[in-house]
Design a protein around this nucleic acid. Structure first.
Lengths: 254, 254
DNA sequence: TAAGGCGGAGTTGCATGCAACTTGAGTCAT
DNA sequence: ATGACTCAAGTTGCATGCAACTCCGCCTTA
């Protein structure tokens, strides 16, 4: 079966398409947790043959979205609140390691320039007394860059890979909960606090204060922990977000 | 092509066989770093068809032993000394997290029993004034169990997965360098130090001293760091170990 | 009526076919 | 002699064929 729409082709394009399509289907809740992912069904839905579907499932399994079923195939995974909290803690711990390594390398002004510019840009966004949705989008973009830069400054591809894998878990990415703040009255204050941590983190790295940088990065991730708890206690506001349907609360089955 | 030798069959057996076979070939140095892994050649070598070979390569890629090549296929990865050090540091950091979480959960005596027994057994091994090779093997086994138990006591499958992935990197596993000690005069002393850390770690977790447990676990991994540096400076003794051929020192190409 | 066995549809895991692409050697022109 | 070009062999990525297995509902039987 040839692709119906002739997109720009490339290496591994079918696998990437299958992977993105499957991720969307799962995060949108169309494939509920516990459900087996039928390969023929995905072939029909995604317009690629079984080979790339299977490869994409394998990659999503290492990503954690699906797990191998007891008798073959793959099953959509369910996440508990504890799973989400642990994933955030893992990311924070590894970012702490990255921050410490960055500080211990004593980076020069040139090395720190991208991070410094990023923090300055974030200052500009947060300085406004009232933030629009566009402002939050800009914050998300700059925040993602800050964390990429922090990862890069660790100087280790191994550490970077570990952080990437940790951040790939649902709701574990540095910006997972920022969008939620946009609908809250105190949303801006959360960003103010987080941005102060960005600033201090940059300072600590610049001064070579490894332990301080490590602690700051770990604590920075706990902003996400607080937002997670708030979203969970406040009427399960996570349900609306992509991936929210994967959450299975401690209480019995719905 | 049917399997030449009819082993016991099972689900995904071909993929597992390909994965193990490829790992052995790579770690044994038969496929040097930088070399493309030809799928047809592996088909001939491993006796399985291209589909499981490809799947196994995908899994080894997430494990870090191979990386996707620029123009398709996979390439055997090379590791620098910095890579190995970073992988150990990542494992130590995550084990620190696991130890802290374990301590903060305030496990009861029953929960700690396996770890306590393990430490007692390790005491028995290390107590001997002179250690045989069998003793080192026993130590490796008990040490592996200690780290698995520590991971389990964190109470989080997410943390456990992260540690597993970190320990899967070459030379990053908790027992990667113990075998090396067996050939050294001071090998026993290293084990004595490490075992003292095991004991203190158990104590800290039992008392709920989270920060101490975290620091102890991280420092415990730095025993491996020291052994790595020693092995590298002392005539590249890593070359003999499985995976040693993957090491590319800072100096130019051999 | 309930329990157990049976059959078939559907699925998975592996093998293989096929077209596009990369690569490297050999050749030709300068 | 050197450089660029051509072409063929080999490789990759995707699609599909096939046998074994699993799961589900139905039927038989006590």
């Amino acid at each position: 079966m040839k692709p119906a729409v002739a997109e720009e082709e490339g290496r591994g394009m079918q696998v990437v398409r299958a992977q993105q399509g499957l991720r969307e289907l799962i995060l949108a809740g169309e494939l509920p947790p516990g459900r087996r992912v039928s390969e023929p069904a995905m072939v029909e839905r995604l317009g690629v043959s079984r080979t790339p579907v299977r490869l994409a499932l394998e990659r999503l399994a290492q990503e954690g979205l699906v797990t191998p079923g007891a008798s073959g195939g793959f099953v959509v995974r369910a996440f508990t609140a504890a799973d989400l909290a642990a994933a955030i803690e893992v990311r924070g711990t590894l970012e702490g390691l990255a921050a410490r390594l960055a500080a211990e390398r004593r980076p020069g002004a040139a090395d720190l320039a991208p991070l410094r510019d990023c923090v300055a840009a974030l200052d500009g966004v947060v300085a406004k007394p009232v933030l629009s949705e566009d402002d939050f989008d800009t914050y998300v973009r700059l925040n993602a860059f800050f964390h990429e830069e922090l990862t890069r400054l660790s100087g280790s591809g191994v550490v970077a890979r570990a952080i990437e894998q940790a951040a790939a878990q649902p709701f574990a990415s540095p910006s997972a909960f920022v969008q939620l703040h946009a609908t809250e009255p105190v949303g801006r204050d959360t960003l103010v606090v987080a941005q102060e941590q960005h600033r201090l983190l940059l300072e600590a790295i610049g001064r070579g204060e490894g332990a301080r940088a490590e602690a700051l990065a770990a604590e920075h991730a706990r902003v996400a922990q607080r937002r997670l708890r708030a979203a969970l206690s406040d009427g399960d506001r996570l349900a609306g977000l992509p991936g929210g349907s994967l959450l299975r609360l401690a209480a019995g089955r719905p």
